[in-house]
Design a protein around this nucleic acid. Structure first.
Lengths: 182, 182
DNA sequence: GTATAAACGGAGTGATGACTTCGAATATAT
DNA sequence: ATATATTCGAAGTCATCACTCCGTTTATAC
């Protein structure tokens, strides 16, 4: 691959991340304009709009997974778990917009993005298990409902455009429910 | 207004509620077909697609508010509060699809729908206050974050397509956080 | 420096969907 | 029963957007 091509590919992904993160309904033209390339260049690198969206979403998911893996090394698993939870919720807005764009623009996520999602959930599951082992999180909470809480808090914060204080108060309520009964 | 016109208007609203509740991206044609009328009839009753969506959303919100007002008469405010919360979350899927369609199809909700939303929140706020007075819900939880939880749980349940058991387990966690600290 | 293969941009193309037009149909008042 | 005002539906119009074509430009191998 020629150097300029690789360069453009990277610029397109960055632009797409930005544009779709802001408004899921954005057109491919918008992405091309922000990236400073022609629209044909976008389609040369990503055969369909869906493919582009998937690439962007996959990257996001991998970044989150990496963050979880990083925190998994912590010697305070309780704090690590809650910190990760909080971080994912705070950064959810743009991520969700992209996922939404994907579902809107035809069918569910493809294999690549699904695999990335699996990896992310696995890493999160590890954080949860560790936090439960130290007693920071109640032992009878299982992954499906805890994950549902993570998704719910993220979507809720995004949808309601919560200011940070309200968001933190909401998270505090959730965390109280996640802690072991006293 | 002629009888057949009023009839058609009602059929169109029912059809729209159904169609948009299922898939936010649906076209006006789809609504017309399900309603069994021509597309022009739809546009005669609702000048724009947005207007139609608003009418449907408003109706939904009013129904929810009525449910809350009904429960406000209960002599067990704690149960009433949690029952309402659970019910809203269970029925969220289609409601959210409509709200989503509205934001997708241009701009935020209009005055009518906003007013309906206000009424709904007010009724919910009443349920919360009553439940707090009897000690069923912790007193230091305030409306904004509790409402955020309601939205979040709804969106989370919808987005993750939770099966009923997982949804109930998630709600149980949330309710534990909402109950007074023991 | 030049040849050439690869990448580029912008002007199409076709499909979709919101909205309009207008002649046909139908409810109600007389 | 008939007049007429109102409502109806099907076939348009127009804009938007994903995607393609092709002549031009540019990076790199020699």
């Amino acid at each position: 691959m020629r150097a300029d091509a690789r360069d453009n590919r990277a610029r397109i992904m960055t632009a797409a991340d930005d544009v779709f993160g802001r408004s899921p309904g954005a057109s491919t033209d918008d992405v091309a304009k922000l990236a400073g390339v022609g629209i044909a260049t976008v389609f040369r690198h990503f055969a369909t709009k869906t493919e582009l969206l998937e690439a962007v979403l996959t990257l996001r998911l991998e970044r989150i997974r990496d963050r979880a893996l990083e925190l998994a090394g912590s010697d305070d698993p309780g704090t690590a778990f809650f910190e990760f939870f909080t971080q994912v919720v705070s950064e959810s807005a743009s991520k969700l917009a992209i996922a939404e764009a994907l579902t809107a623009a035809g069918a569910a996520a493809g294999e690549e993005a699904r695999e990335a999602g699996r990896g992310m959930r696995e890493a999160f599951s590890g954080l949860l298990a560790a936090a439960q082992k130290t007693g920071a999180v109640r032992a009878d909470a299982e992954m499906p409902e805890v994950y549902a809480l993570l998704i719910g808090a993220s979507r809720g914060a995004t949808a309601a455009k919560l200011d940070p204080e309200t968001r933190d108060r909401m998270l505090a309520l959730i965390y109280d429910g996640l802690k072991p009964p006293r």
